[in-house]
Design a protein around this nucleic acid. Structure first.
Lengths: 359, 359
DNA sequence: CCCGCGAAGTTATACGTAACACCTCGGCCG
DNA sequence: CGGCCGAGGTGTTACGTATAACTTCGCGGG
């Protein structure tokens, strides 16, 4: 059936190649080894294992090749494949920090979709507010097909620009021309839902615990809240910008609650962690939540239901952000147009908000 | 000075190679392009850019090459380099879930060390207790040099076994011969510190909220606690195994606190999230923490200080686990012996523990 | 004067895979 | 009977890099 490999003189005279790393002693079998063992050519092995043999290789031969590969424990060399194909099926995810549950969930979503499409995800922590600008491409973590980023330094962006890699941006200014695609949340809508909820409960004096980080998403929150409250006459709002940290929020809230002038009856926080800090401040001042002061979070992380009272907050579909980001990247890589449109968010009313106290 | 490239006939007649992905239109310059532009051979470019030119290339030429590379925006093709060198400078980190802050911090530590050594880290969520065994190598996320794993299914392990990749195990049975190196925490010591603390406060009736997941680390906790309490006569301990989830812990604690027989005065939890659940249960039953019941956590996550009262817990150096894991892997890859010895843990006494109530 | 040697490069190859172009052969149609 | 076609392969090349082995040249010493 097969013509048999005619004895060609092997180019590598003695087969004792040294490995760069002492990563084991068995030199992994190559597709050529499989071919030799199966009595076919390397091309045939590649065709069969690449599932491109329909009509070009007989069923019998294909089975033989597959069996031989399995029995030899053959695993294709990814570096070689990547080189040959010019793509690596690997995406870079740039996020401020995975210790932030939101971004961990984004990663989870992205990784799930990636995995389903035979892609890998490598993460690089972007030094967002800290200024410790490092270049994720200088350290060359891996060969990449594309980038999904939620927050990038200018330095990283310019470094990326030199690579021609498609870029998907998450939760950032949709007008930014740097990105080939955007995945955004209906943040403004979420804030509006919070405002409506609190206004409906009769609150008129507001404190906004905002993030000190100056990114697009936080800008939207500030503007949306201001717009929503301004629409109702008689409301006042004060804004404090703090680091995204429980204790920083606690201190800020404590000052605001004990300061001069009438006390705010509602504290709108840019994140659940900030809300936790606000709750601690209130409790320490002997104020009850929500009887004396209502507090809202944002994100709906695990923290929101671990606290007592459980937080009224806005649920962000974090996993979906990651999924959609990865889908967008895949679309770009295949020349398709990514799905547009903001992901909806949802107000979740729990225990930390209630009617404004009389007076 | 240079001999100039004599006009060799190019093997690729028309230079209009199609790209697999429409990832841009500029075909990235290769080291050969740099060589041509700089008037040297590709080998020289490789030597200079690889920093191996000392004594083999003149300073002037080296500078020229570097300038040319920069001006062309040259970036080495990682796939080709990986193929040539037989290593990829990429490690796989297998963790149950990055949404668990502990593992996110492990990743942070590992990624930091990796980055410092020019390595990348790709994460794969191991389906720990869920049974959804998938093979991280079947989906071939990336070419790998080694694996760091904190919790692997049997399936993933056997898949790994066929690869000859060095394996570093985190927080798992040090007797496991599968791993080439182990990085462990002094978990038992931490539990003992908790027990000593609570015993010193006069507690005698204990509830242990344990993880339902049956891994080595949780086994150690159970055994250590039992041993520590057994050493003091007159103590009783009841154990409830629950999913690592706030609400599951709340329900379990609620049952235990309202059940028949004398109420436990101390609840030892296998994680901060479980402790949060226990706190909620106590509060809902009108019990004060720590006056009526003392509660301890484990891990010292952000949650521990977000709660009120702040949790007495055991601080685990999660980042160090990741750092040491990556260091161990690097050591293995270089043929060195990794550092041995458990990482110390520390009891952090906060507000959720106090003297046992009288009676 | 010639040899050897170091400096400064170059040439040539191999890494393992995918895929294009070619080959061979039996059968079938005109 | 010749030509053609399709089934079932094989030979060969290129991907971009790192590096071993070789070359060339100028120079100093014996």
């Amino acid at each position: 059936m097969t013509h048999g490999p005619r004895e060609t003189t092997p180019r590598t005279p003695p087969d004792d190649r040294p490995r760069a790393y002492p990563t084991g002693d068995t030199p992994r079998p190559t597709s050529r080894d499989v071919a030799r063992a199966a009595g076919v050519s390397q091309a045939t092995v590649s065709l069969v294992l690449g599932d491109k043999w329909r009509g070009r290789v007989s069923q019998r031969t294909a089975d033989t090749v597959r069996d031989t590969a399995r029995s030899l424990g053959y695993r294709p060399n990814l570096a070689a494949r990547n080189l040959r194909l010019g793509r690596t099926r690997t995406a870079l995810l740039v996020v401020p920090a995975l210790t932030n549950e939101f971004f961990a969930r984004v990663h989870t979503g992205a990784a799930a979709v990636a995995d389903r499409h035979g892609f890998g995800v490598v993460v690089y922590p972007s030094p967002d507010g800290t200024g410790t600008a490092r270049d994720p491409f200088a350290s060359a973590p891996a060969a990449l097909d594309g980038v999904i980023a939620s927050s990038m330094t200018a330095g990283a962006l310019t470094a990326l620009r030199g690579t021609d890699l498609p870029l998907v941006m998450l939760d950032s200014d949709p007008a930014d021309p740097e990105a080939a695609a955007h995945v955004n949340l209906a943040i403004g809508d979420g804030i509006r839902q919070i405002a409506d909820h609190l206004l409906g409960l009769g609150h008129r004096r507001y404190l906004h615990l905002a993030s000190a980080i100056d990114t697009w998403t936080f800008g939207v929150r500030a503007r949306s809240l201001a717009a929503a409250l301004d629409a109702t006459p008689g409301t006042t709002a004060h804004t404090l910008r703090v680091p995204l940290d429980v204790n920083a929020a606690r201190e800020a809230a404590q000052q605001a609650l004990t300061g001069p002038g009438p006390r705010p009856t509602a504290i709108v926080c840019d994140g659940d962690a900030l809300a936790a800090g606000a709750c601690k401040a209130a409790r320490r001042l002997g104020l009850r939540v929500p009887d004396d002061v209502s507090i809202t979070g944002f994100d709906d992380l695990a923290l929101a239901t671990a606290l007592e009272p459980e937080l009224t907050t806005v649920r962000l579909p974090a996993e979906q952000v990651g999924e959609r980001g990865m889908h967008a990247l895949l679309a770009l890589l295949e020349g398709r147009t990514p799905t547009e449109g903001d992901l909806p968010v949802e107000l979740v009313v729990r225990e930390s908000t209630g009617p404004a106290p009389a007076g």
